[in-house]
Write a protein that binds this DNA or RNA. Structure first.
Lengths: 225, 225, 225, 225
DNA sequence: CATGAATGAGCATTCATTCAT
DNA sequence: CATGAATGAATGCTCATTCAT
């Protein structure tokens, strides 16, 4: 391994170190209430060092979104590359991929929505911004591909695949956000996984054209009162 | 009407005026990048005046969430108070209520999640905070009540009603957020309503134990290829 | 006097107060080593207040140059408006005007040259910049007009009037700068006035076509040794 | 040549390399807006290396002034050592020396005045400071010697020679500064040399007791209007 | 009540300087 | 010697908040 390559690797490690610290701080305090010094302290670096790796606070923030998108994208690629599965199996794999994304970084999905500020977008380098855009398009596109398989096979409901993908992703991220805010206000323990399980089940039931009676066995209707 | 009452009314009008301005500014720039002066200018008031009506920036921000929750709560009360409907009809009314919430204030749902910061919560008056908590619990509880009706009647899938309500709310707000961020990055026109329509359809299909063949007529499966 | 007018006047007073403080601080420490807090302290104001009156440090700095240019311009206008003088008398009045400029603000002429940085220019508002440019052109133009009178009358040497004006202004400001730096290094007391007196005498002797023997009486050549 | 001597020479080359880069950067951006990294990049060295040759930014800056003073001093020594010239010829040689200084480093004369900051002086090593002081005294003294010759011969006006030298130096450096600032603001092309030519002519006319009619041939008065 | 000028603590960012390699 | 990553103190600037009018 050349000296250049080692340096490059070291540099990447630093970026990761900073991003991990930033994730923690932003997740705990939100963007506005997190200071670069907080993040530096968490990363056990000096404030100046952070600016060697990230142009500014907004860009550091956005990089966290990029990171989760990259992971999502990779996981989705894996799913779609797994040939010869039935549509139902693809959806199951998709669900698992999304769970993994959640496990990879439960809170950070929130951040993607905080990029909502057009002021923030101004501070991002065009490269970073376009990378985020491309990855999010790719990811949703891959999800849509999965649904398209089922629709073509006549197993899933005949809606525009992209709309189905949007609905799933919206539900997924919305639930995470929702649980987070419940945690904040209601101090409830995280029962997100179970909730998400239910949501996914409802969703996949919803897209199937023909319900599988076997799936209903656990949810037999109560005796009407 | 007494003079006191008139004053009270006038005061409330001012609060509304400020909140409307705040909504616009926060929606456009996010919490961190919005200044009190921006809001004051938008409200055609002086910065000082805002502090006569709201304790601080965090509280003004949180008040927006309270407002949408109040509206949601009222609409949900209306639904549940409408006696004698079938569960399916309740769900349909619920959907309509949520659309109305979205129409009432399309962007502000986002704000509720920006309260994520525990730093922000510290700056809220206990009254405001508990009001928010109570209203959100009430709202979700009412939604759960609706689903419970269907479950008891054996029409809906037998899951904990609260979990179903959470899933629906997560999906609803997640979609709004998702569409917002798409607007920002992809400059797409808002096809949120259609997307939300599809999402709700999938969701309600998912909770029903027996699919209504009539509902499938528009979505007949394509001839398998 | 209307309330608006009084406010305007108050505002102008503040600007002056800040500029006086800024002049002192910049003169003592130079641009780089002067901090906005230093200036605020000197002005007995808070740092934030300065930014209500000046966009940034560069603009505050440049405003000092504008101020001296405004004064110079006014004084020069007075000279040229004084009709019916002989060219020699105009030059004498010009000299006096420049002395007054020097008395008005001995050190600040220096600042005009520190604007030398193109980086600084980028931070100036276009209005301020163009005002500075216009005033300096006006001032030099007026000076040139004075020399032109003498040239037309055949009393002064026939050079382009603007070049003569440039030479005079260069000499004037150069001497101030030179004395300043001598003060710094040599800790000499200010004998600028006498030096400037001599410089002006040499200069005016230089532009006259026919020397007035009377003027030489004080400077009779020493007996050759 | 010993190995030590070669090393010494190599070291000196590096110092020159850095100073040339520093000159460019400081001239373009001024002291405040120039960073050590800018200079390092311009010198194709690393920031750390600069500190092997210069104690700090202020000292690097001051060294530029020292350099020009050294050159000026050498040139002036040459003039005064040229025995047997007439005073007029000495002045002509002096003028040429100053032009050469200007050619050697047109912009850097400016820097000498930026040392105006007493804060900067604090950061200089006493040796450097005293060297600057000594050289500037020497240079001006040498110039004074030249004028003294003419005064003693009864050719030049009988003023204190040092005052005449100051006037000339002030005029010279002031013109450079003035042209520089005109370049910045007015975007004029550099007609400094012609302007300086005129200034010198006026000056030397001014110091001569008896005007040489031959010198006026190019500047015959226009026919009075 | 309303104002908006003033505040000053707070923060993002810079950059001269250092030092391990 | 040379490097350049890391430092962290310094500083320009912002902006939530106050308060005299």
């Amino acid at each position: 391994m050349g000296i250049h390559e080692r340096k490059e690797r070291e540099k990447e490690r630093r970026r990761q170190q900073i991003m991990i610290a930033a994730k923690r701080v932003f997740s705990a305090n939100g963007f506005a209430k997190s200071t670069m010094e907080d993040i530096a302290r968490e990363a056990e670096l000096s404030p100046g060092t952070i600016y060697l790796y990230f142009k500014n606070k907004d860009e550091l923030y956005a990089s966290l979104s990029l990171r989760i998108l990259q992971y999502l994208n990779i996981r989705l690629k894996h799913v779609i590359n797994h040939k010869g599965l039935e549509p139902e199996e693809y959806v199951e794999a998709l669900k698992q991929a999304m769970y993994d994304v959640y496990d990879f970084d439960p809170l950070i999905v929130i951040n993607m929505f905080q990029l909502q500020s057009s002021e923030s977008v101004k501070n991002l380098s065009p490269e970073l911004l376009s990378e985020i855009i491309e990855l999010s398009q790719n990811s949703l596109g891959t999800m849509a591909d999965i649904f398209e398989k089922g629709i073509k096979k006549g197993i899933f409901i005949n809606h525009h695949p992209q709309a189905i993908a949007d609905a799933l992703w919206g539900m997924f991220s919305g639930l995470i956000l929702w649980e987070e805010s419940k945690k904040l206000f209601h101090e409830n323990k995280d029962h997100l996984k179970p909730n998400m399980e239910i949501a996914f089940e409802l969703f996949t039931r919803g897209i199937r054209l023909h319900q599988n009676p076997a799936l209903l066995k656990d949810v037999a209707p109560p005796t009407p009162q």
